[in-house]
Simulated assay, not measured.
Amino acid sequence: MAALAIRNEQNKTVTISAKLIFYGNHATEELAQAIANEIRDMYHEPKASVSLDEERYEVRIRIDYELVSLAEVVPLSIENTNFRYNFIRLEAQNHVTRSFMGFGLGDNVGHWITTDNLGKSTTATHEFGHALGLDHPARIDFRGLGNPGIMAPRGTIVDASLQWNPLVAAGEYGGTLNPLHRRVQAYEIEAIFKDIVFDDNGYAEIGHLSNVLFSENGNVLNVFF
């Protein structure tokens, strides 16, 4: 998701601030709150800091959200220039049978499905990472390395205790990463800040704005004027 990074020179903090604008048939207050809490809590868990101009800054995450109707989200997306605003459709399922973000790393749109157990499974936090510009890691075998990062994809090889089924051989059915065991790692947060540039007011834009909306099934929604 697109976001703003806000740098505070006085207290040496940098805040990643994003607003999730939820729409769709399953956009409920309960689900929205669970998603926002999961993302915020998981990104605060490593208590990460980053080096900016050779000084350490504590990283904080601010996640706001709003529920809107389809009629309301169309003009919001058309007129949007705010890098904090991310348009996420929430539905029971879609044509790719998984939650996804939009068009390339850093995009501010997505289609998430409730069958991914949003707010409880690390899926929302994983997708949030994609929208902050994080890709899947090149490494797919994390055996002996403990919990993999939040960006580890399905099919990642891990220690038996982190598998869906700890009794099967690594790589076999059930012998890959159970996403519940993903954790946001400090090195992933550091990667978010690579190459971003702060302006004189201490703001830096993360990601990009496509402002595209999706249909119930996850196809691009054609909006006519």
Rank of each mutant, 00 (worst) to 15 (best):
residue 80 N to A: 13
residue 80 N to Q: 11
residue 94 N to E: 09
residue 138 A to R: 15
residue 127 E to D: 14
residue 210 S to W: 03
residue 124 A to W: 02
residue 68 V to P: 01
residue 66 E to C: 04
residue 88 I to F: 04
residue 12 K to W: 06
residue 51 S to E: 12
residue 156 T to N: 02
residue 88 I to R: 01
residue 5 A to P: 05
residue 125 T to Y: 04
residue 131 A to H: 05
residue 71 A to N: 15
residue 58 E to A: 15
residue 126 H to N: 03
residue 9 E to I: 12
residue 92 A to R: 13
residue 47 K to M: 06
residue 14 V to L: 11
residue 214 F to H: 08
residue 148 P to Y: 06
residue 203 Y to F: 15
residue 62 R to M: 09
residue 73 V to P: 01
residue 185 Q to H: 12
residue 160 A to G: 11
residue 65 Y to V: 09
residue 137 P to A: 14
residue 77 S to I: 06
residue 50 V to E: 02
residue 158 V to D: 05
residue 32 A to L: 02
residue 124 A to R: 02
residue 28 T to S: 10
residue 168 V to H: 06
residue 83 F to E: 08
residue 71 A to T: 15
residue 194 K to T: 13
residue 56 R to K: 13
residue 175 G to K: 08
residue 46 P to M: 08
residue 67 L to G: 03
residue 159 D to A: 10
residue 62 R to I: 07
residue 12 K to E: 14
residue 44 H to E: 08
residue 100 F to C: 10
residue 17 S to C: 13
residue 111 H to Y: 04
residue 192 I to R: 01
residue 186 A to D: 06
residue 221 L to C: 05
residue 197 V to S: 10
residue 23 Y to I: 09
residue 155 G to P: 05
residue 32 A to C: 05
residue 140 I to K: 11
residue 3 A to F: 06
residue 153 P to R: 06
residue 215 S to A: 14
residue 81 T to N: 11
residue 121 S to F: 09
residue 128 F to R: 00
residue 123 T to G: 03
residue 85 Y to I: 05
residue 208 H to K: 13
residue 39 I to F: 07
residue 17 S to V: 12
residue 79 E to N: 15
residue 107 D to H: 02
residue 217 N to G: 12
residue 145 L to H: 08
residue 178 N to P: 02
residue 70 L to C: 07
residue 19 K to N: 15
residue 198 F to C: 09
residue 104 G to C: 11
residue 59 V to I: 12
residue 147 N to V: 03
residue 60 R to M: 11
residue 117 N to Y: 13
residue 214 F to T: 11
residue 156 T to Y: 01
residue 77 S to D: 10
residue 12 K to G: 04
residue 141 D to G: 07
residue 121 S to V: 04
residue 133 G to E: 03
residue 162 L to E: 00
residue 216 E to R: 12
residue 66 E to R: 10
residue 218 G to R: 02
residue 7 R to M: 14
residue 58 E to D: 14
residue 150 I to W: 00
residue 161 S to P: 00
residue 86 N to C: 09
residue 8 N to M: 06
residue 8 N to R: 05
residue 20 L to A: 04
residue 214 F to Q: 05
residue 3 A to I: 10
residue 213 L to D: 02
residue 14 V to A: 07
residue 206 I to S: 01
residue 131 A to C: 13
residue 61 I to D: 00
residue 59 V to C: 02
residue 54 E to G: 04
residue 75 P to L: 07
residue 131 A to L: 14
residue 207 G to V: 03
residue 46 P to Q: 09
residue 112 W to F: 15
residue 171 G to C: 08
residue 121 S to D: 15
residue 93 Q to I: 12
residue 60 R to P: 00
residue 125 T to V: 09
residue 112 W to G: 04
residue 11 N to D: 15
residue 56 R to I: 02
residue 122 T to M: 13
residue 189 I to V: 11
residue 116 D to C: 06
residue 168 V to S: 04
residue 176 T to A: 12
residue 67 L to W: 02
residue 177 L to D: 05
residue 187 Y to H: 14
residue 41 D to I: 12
residue 181 H to F: 14
residue 203 Y to R: 13
residue 155 G to I: 12
residue 49 S to A: 15
residue 178 N to G: 11
residue 47 K to P: 00
residue 220 V to R: 13
residue 182 R to D: 06
residue 117 N to Q: 13
residue 71 A to W: 03
residue 38 E to Q: 12
residue 25 N to S: 15
residue 159 D to T: 11
residue 195 D to H: 07
residue 56 R to H: 11
residue 169 A to R: 15
residue 213 L to T: 06
residue 166 P to C: 07
residue 75 P to C: 08
residue 182 R to P: 00
residue 42 M to I: 01
residue 55 E to R: 13
residue 200 D to G: 14
